[in-house]
Write a protein that binds this DNA or RNA. Structure first.
Lengths: 342, 342
DNA sequence: CTGTTAGCGCTTTCAA
DNA sequence: TTGAAAGCGCTAACAG
């Protein structure tokens, strides 16, 4: 159905010049007659000429496009990261192809394949909660395509990464609970496959130990981050013979799900049980009481990932030493941990 | 830096056959020797051959990619629509390129240009709150590239659209407020440029008139959907000598912003003032009291948009008659309009 | 069943 | 300053 789109050949014919000249005029090469250049530009805009990126990319072996694959984007966390990355990428003349794996390993693999087929110049990725095999990223890396992980990274791969100081954030959060008088702090943790889970868990444990509090196995629950499971496990924790007086959740959605269960049970937050999350999603300020949480510099995560890509895109694979940027977190105290706080 | 990626020529050389044969083997054409086919497939997978979509698209003048441009994706509304569209597009063998215009007209224009440069086969779009000129979409349409609008559509363009019954939704919402005893219902409306604003406003007015309630100019405020402005206008409404006893907001973010202002002022929701939103964002169930709102079938919006694209992609431009799908909304009653509701 | 050829739209030497 | 020619990776007639 498509009418033939305008090409440089159309312009060349119309002007009785060669397509090479048109190409040069369009790109403002130096050795070009001002007259012809002007004519070309005029005609191009009159015909609404749009360069065919497919053709350019093919001949240049460079698409000026990077792929971004995120596990979900219903929560504002990843969209914010994407916006940060887009900001710096578009300034650098790159397009960003956004893929969403929907927390499915298979989708993630399909996404990376599709991006590879589109010959992206690089990939910025955060893996799904079920990804345990990283061959698809390994393959990209072997093919010389820069990969930058952010947030949910793969430790084994020797590529650049941007993460936040999950350990420190978790430590602060739990220490805050301890110094405000909590004795039995439960932790609803993420799956062991995600490094962020392991690091936040470590922060939790170390904070307890620093303050000489016991680390109790049955107060630590690792789960797969599906919302329904969160509800089940929180109920389980509350029904314990000796229930916790505080809960540190791996992320805000988990914490919010927990708060709903707690309120539903008629328990008071924070009097009966305090809750702390991680991420500072906008929803954490809406719920009542406000959710105490660990804020991450979302836009910066995206920006830094983009910078790390740009640093390596035009240099030799061998010359590049992967880097890991660690961004700082910040504790946001609200009413879910301290009565009468905001 | 990029090592040369494996091509069909590499495979052909290795096997001492022609690249056409390789191409045929890869695509399972009928006239191909089972033996050679098997050898090709084996070698291809051994070398981790990935077809170059750029080349294929170029020669076929078809990219099997559609672009989606949305005004924002920090709120789950558009991401959900995207997921719906992605579901049907990927089943049909298409990739989806997601662009986010950040509510900026200029970004939107840039997005469409970039998609055109990537030679997408079609575009599914929802315009920004500031878009008043639609030449960029007009241009696509003239070039024979199918455009499907959803949610925030352009009425003037003769292309397919999917919308929800905004009028009906608004009418139901306001009628609900009236039948639960509200007399002075304010409306925080969207900008006049968006048809959804106009239709929801009309639903509001007609509901009032049906119930013989006056339509008061100073209870209707049109605004540009920026969060800060919402706050200002709600304060203004509350400070009126004769303040409203109910507020119907153009969407949930606006309604939630309003609730925060109202609570901040020490007024009770819904006793002093009832609030109703539009969209049924997840946050509307989290805030207290729960926000009464009009639910839209978000995934279906995306799915329908995708179907409308697929219907027209392979037929002649002249043969296709644009359609408008209107999906139904549903009123979700929560505590912000009725005491003791959920 | 397979190879040869042309061409998709573009950039880039190399000559003129 | 410009044109001719080659080639990016692939598909699709057209012969054989």
């Amino acid at each position: 159905m498509k009418r033939h789109q305008v090409t440089i050949i159309d312009i060349a014919k119309e002007l009785n010049i060669s397509k090479s000249t048109v190409s040069r005029a369009l790109h403002g090469h130096q050795d070009i007659n001002e007259q012809t250049k002007k004519k070309v530009l005029e005609l191009a805009s009159r015909l609404d000429y749009q360069p065919n990126l497919l053709a350019t990319s093919l001949v240049m072996s460079k698409s000026y496009t990077v792929g971004m694959v995120v596990p979900e984007f219903l929560t504002p966390f990843f969209p914010s990261v994407i916006m940060g990355a887009q900001e710096v990428m578009s300034k650098a003349g790159y397009n960003v192809m956004i893929c969403q794996s929907n927390e499915s390993y298979e989708m993630e693999v399909a996404n990376t394949k599709a991006l590879l087929a589109s010959r992206v110049d690089g990939i910025l990725a955060s893996v799904t909660r079920e990804t345990r095999n990283f061959d698809h990223f390994q393959a990209l890396h072997r093919k010389g395509i820069p990969v930058v992980f952010f947030n949910r990274v793969c430790e084994e791969l020797e590529v650049s990464k941007v993460i936040v100081d999950d350990y420190e954030g978790a430590f602060m959060a739990v220490e805050h609970l301890i110094t405000t008088g909590r004795k039995r702090i439960a932790h609803l943790a993420g799956p062991d496959s995600l490094i962020i889970s392991r690091r936040r868990l470590k922060g939790y444990i170390d904070a307890l130990q620093k303050h000489i509090l016991p680390v109790e196995e049955d107060l630590i629950i690792q789960y797969d981050l599906t919302p329904e499971k969160a509800t089940i496990y929180v109920k389980h924790l509350l029904d314990l013979p000796n229930p916790p007086d505080a809960l540190f959740a791996i992320n805000d959605p988990t914490a919010i799900a927990a708060m709903l269960v707690i309120k539903d049970k008629g328990l008071r937050i924070p009097q009966d049980i305090a809750v702390v999350g991680f991420s500072n999603d906008p929803a954490s300020a809406l719920i009542e009481p406000g959710l105490t949480t660990v804020a991450q510099p979302v836009f910066d995560i995206g920006r830094e990932a983009a910078y790390l890509f740009l640093e390596q895109v035009d240099i030799d694979l061998e010359e590049y030493k992967p880097q890991t940027k660690v961004l700082q977190t910040k504790l946001i105290v609200r009413g879910s941990s301290i009565p009468h706080a905001v």
